[in-house]
Simulated assay, not measured.
Amino acid sequence: MRSPEGQRNPLPVYRAFRELGDVVPAPWGGWFVTGFDLANQVLRGRDWLTPDIAWQERRPDPERWRAPATREMSHTLSRLNAPDHTTQRRALGNLFGRSTLEAVRPGVEEHVDTLLDDLERALLAHGEADFATVVADRLPIRTVGGWLGLAEEDHERILDFTHRQVFAQELLPTRSQLAVSEAATLEMRAYFTGLLRHRRAHLGEDVLSGWIRYWDEWHAGDREAADRVLYHLTMFVTIASLETTATLLSSSVALLLADPARWRWLREHPGHVGDAVEEALRHDPPIWLNSRVAAKDTVLGGVRVAQDSVVHVLFGAANHDPRHNPDPETFDILRGGSQLTFGGGVHYCLGAALARLEATTLLTRMLKRFPTLRAATDGPEYAPRMVFRRITSLKVTRS
């Protein structure tokens, strides 16, 4: 999966996993879940927990789980179980509900237009441009940055430590990767604690000020506890929305440009832009896998799974399960199928609606402004990862 071949074309990898079965033993212990229905069962089931701090403390390899960068992320929503997870999700409510999306929509549209102006200038100046770095990497940080009131001059810094910190969330990080991630974690912590300290001293009517008021009241008399929650919440909501959305934006464009007829057809049928985004999410998910642990001894797809055993849900393999999505390797805008890319159950992605808004807004405007856009190379370039997929370059040009 980390190889250049696997990154460029993971379809044979998905196929090979599915041929081994719906529940496949991992070489290091635990299991891969490849079938759509079983993956959905794990993501939604109450008997499957996220690998939290308590689970990590029970591991026989504590060095791996006690790495500072790993433990930092283990306090975020994605690694919390009830009751802590329930408390924080209820406090957030429907984070990107209809009213919030309508409030941020004008900003997203403005950011898209500005970034497409940058793309236009790059194409005029050089004949080709890197869509990933000029547009896709920039839209999510401008969107979430504007929503949380992050200073624009901080955007590059946030992107930089996000790209480096993510190694701690890999499936099998090396010591050198964990060292890189630890350095980024220290920078990340300094930035967000400083941000919260400044915002608390200058409270306004923004989202972050509202969170500060809420958690200061919830932990009345215990400022340290409030600060811990606020730090992990603000940090997680910010960085979780960056690479995943950027990869969705780049992969959507790459998949549409892979066949020029798709780009032309979608331009003639703009009402199906949302369908194109859903198919991109299914066909090439920005996150390749997510892990859960068994809360008790159980049977999954005929396989006995002991309590505390870890299972890795392979989103790509599950989304390409032909029993659920026939002819899964074909990119079909009109498929009308479904995908598990945003997860399911209590850990369903907080930013799913926002990511869809960014993707549909961007594609709609791109199709109008760049009707003859085409790929300038054979395809995107990728970072060699197994969990968070990242497109580092996508060169485009015009006919």
Rank of each mutant, 00 (worst) to 15 (best):
G210V: 10
G344L: 03
N290D: 06
T392S: 09
Q177H: 05
E153S: 12
A184E: 04
L394W: 08
D275K: 08
T70C: 06
Q307H: 11
D117A: 11
A190T: 14
E217P: 03
A125Q: 15
T244F: 07
S251W: 04
Q41D: 08
V166W: 01
W48Q: 06
G301F: 10
Y231E: 12
H320L: 05
I287Q: 05
V23C: 04
V273M: 00
Q307I: 10
E279V: 01
Q169D: 01
A355E: 05
W215S: 05
W65Q: 04
L248D: 02
E120Q: 15
L249R: 03
F331V: 09
R18P: 03
A39I: 02
V237L: 15
L20Y: 05
H85F: 07
N40V: 05
W215K: 06
E5G: 09
W147Y: 15
T245P: 03
P380G: 05
G336W: 06
D206G: 09
M1Q: 01
R213A: 15
L249V: 10
R365Q: 13
I391P: 00
V13L: 13
T397V: 03
T245L: 04
R58N: 06
P60C: 06
A151Y: 03
R58A: 14
T360E: 10
H75T: 12
R323G: 13
L233D: 01
D327G: 05
A122G: 06
G29L: 03
D37A: 14
L350N: 02
V293I: 15
G149S: 14
A220D: 11
L178H: 00
R89N: 04
G302N: 05
R164A: 04
L159E: 04
P380K: 06
T70W: 06
L394P: 07
S181L: 04
E120L: 15
P83I: 11
R164W: 01
W263R: 10
E109N: 08
